[in-house]
Simulated scan of single mutants.
Amino acid sequence: MWGAVVRVFIGVRLPESIKEQLGAVQEEVKRASLKGSFTDPDNFHLTMRFIGEVNPEQKCAIETALARCTQEQGPFQIETAGLGNFFKKNKWIIWLGIKESRQLHQVYDQLNAELLGEATTVADEVAFIPHLTLGRGIVLSQEWEDLCKVPLPSDQKIPVTALTLFESVRVNGKLVYRPIADFPFHGQTSRTISSKQTNP
């Protein structure tokens, strides 16, 4: 039930085949690391917009914005690129990048406009760098330049057919990104996911 405040974000689901490829790359990063918090393979996704804590009224407004954003957009594909990172406080966030996609950036811009129109968020203050996070708080045991030499899957295509509203929740101490509702592209009606489908 949606009677309480929850933590949410908007993203794109990934096919199992892509998650498997990400898992293989993640293992290479683990071998090059002394420590870190690595993404559970079930949680692999492409973040479009982090929202944070919302109440039931705000959730409804977000869903309205998502429905409008996806009303006329048709499905498209994106492709994976090389390893990338954000470096903060002597630790790494390591990710697999996404090749430049005009359509993906258009969806991001429209999504932001719709969210602002519904007064559900403030303007995004960070640049949109599409990426698939492999791990956070990583301390490497080798130079970054050496890690970048690891062979990667080439030009893995990812279908983008919908935006998904996710809930970030702890289940028995484990972080779970639980899909709440899918909003398919190309004029399809949003589909709220049943509890049976979302239970981890």
Rank of each mutant, 00 (worst) to 15 (best):
M1Q: 01
W2M: 13
G3P: 01
A4G: 04
V5C: 07
V5P: 01
R7W: 01
F9S: 04
I10M: 06
G11A: 03
G11H: 07
S17M: 04
S17I: 12
I18W: 05
I18H: 06
K19W: 00
K19D: 02
E20F: 00
E20H: 00
Q21I: 00
L22Q: 00
G23P: 00
V25C: 00
V25R: 00
E28W: 00
K30A: 00
R31K: 13
R31C: 01
A32I: 00
S33Y: 02
K35H: 01
T39C: 00
L46A: 03
T47V: 07
R49L: 04
R49I: 09
F50A: 02
E53D: 11
N55E: 14
K59V: 14
C60A: 14
A61T: 11
A61Y: 09
E63Q: 14
T64G: 09
R68C: 11
C69E: 10
T70N: 03
Q71C: 08
E72C: 09
Q73Y: 13
P75T: 10
P75Y: 08
F76H: 11
F76L: 15
A81F: 14
G82D: 15
G84S: 13
G84Q: 12
N85Y: 15
F86N: 11
F86I: 12
F87A: 06
F87N: 07
K88Y: 07
K89G: 01
W95R: 02
W95F: 14
I98D: 03
I98G: 04
S101A: 03
Q103E: 15
L104N: 03
H105A: 05
Q106P: 02
Y108R: 11
Y108Q: 14
N112Q: 13
E114V: 08
L115Q: 00
L115R: 01
L115G: 03
L115E: 01
E118T: 06
A119W: 04
A123R: 14
A123F: 09
D124W: 06
D124E: 15
A127V: 08
H131V: 02
L132W: 03
I138L: 02
S141P: 02
S141L: 04
E143Q: 12
W144S: 05
W144V: 11
D146Q: 10
D146A: 10
K149T: 14
P151K: 03
S154H: 12
K157A: 15
K157E: 13
K157L: 15
I158R: 10
I158M: 13
P159H: 12
P159K: 12
V160H: 11
A162M: 15
A162T: 13
L163M: 15
R170D: 05
R170M: 15
V171I: 15
N172M: 09
G173R: 09
G173I: 13
K174H: 14
L175G: 08
V176K: 15
I180Y: 08
F183M: 01
P184T: 10
P184E: 06
F185G: 03
F185V: 05
G187M: 05
R191H: 10
T192M: 11
I193Q: 09
S194R: 10
K196H: 12
Q197H: 13
N199H: 08
P200Q: 05
